[in-house]
Amino acid sequence: MRDRVSRAAAGSIVVLMVAMAILGCRGNQYARIIQPGDKQMMGSHQAGQETFAPLVDEAVAKLLARHPHQQIPVQYAGTGAEPLPPPKSSICFVGIENCTAEEIGDFKAQLYELIDSKIAECDSFTSVNRRWVDAGLKELRVKPEELFIPGRMQTFIDVMQKQGQPFQYLLFAKLTSGTTRENKDYQRDYLLTLELVDIRTGAQDKQSATLSKGYHHSWTSRARSTLGSK
């Protein structure tokens, strides 16, 4: 009887140790390619791609829609019959200012590239390469927001022309947020504003996109909120 108990105890220990060895080992890290259309991850504590991507899409589309490809009289080059395309206006995108309550970390550089690429894709505008913009700001030791100080903008235009990078528009982007708290949950409204300044006239066009996101302290709170909104 006692031997049976001992064997059972020994067997249990062996099973337990094997189970611990199998189940309790450290796991490896895995990754996968998230294809377009796959479920994207959502930032649980702060904004991520789910916030920034639609903001950029909407704000840039709105801005470019107001500056369509200009129809100019058809020109002919020499004796040929091919029409010359109208020249694109050049935009100098000087940067994004983050005025939200969150540190956006590595997203800032990506937001710049997203906006810059969308401008480059459109028919109306072309953008000045960022390296030239950085070199110009560095040479003058001028901050992007200081370009509105009288004289600074002209100096910057001169420097860019000297680098062979003339432009017609300055573009500024600004990311802001507003937070509304409800007990442990909160809603944050993100606003991306694009300001396009015509350096010849000083005229300004401003377009923005907004997106609101709710942050919940538990899944039940999120479920309640989702049901309440239906």
């Binding site: 611990m20 060895a21 309790g24 080992c25």
Partner: peptide
């Protein structure tokens, strides 16, 4: 360190 900071029950035992 990133790998080792995960719990390992056998090692812990």
């Amino acid at each position: 360190f990133d790998h080792l900071e995960q719990a390992d029950l056998a090692e812990s035992a």
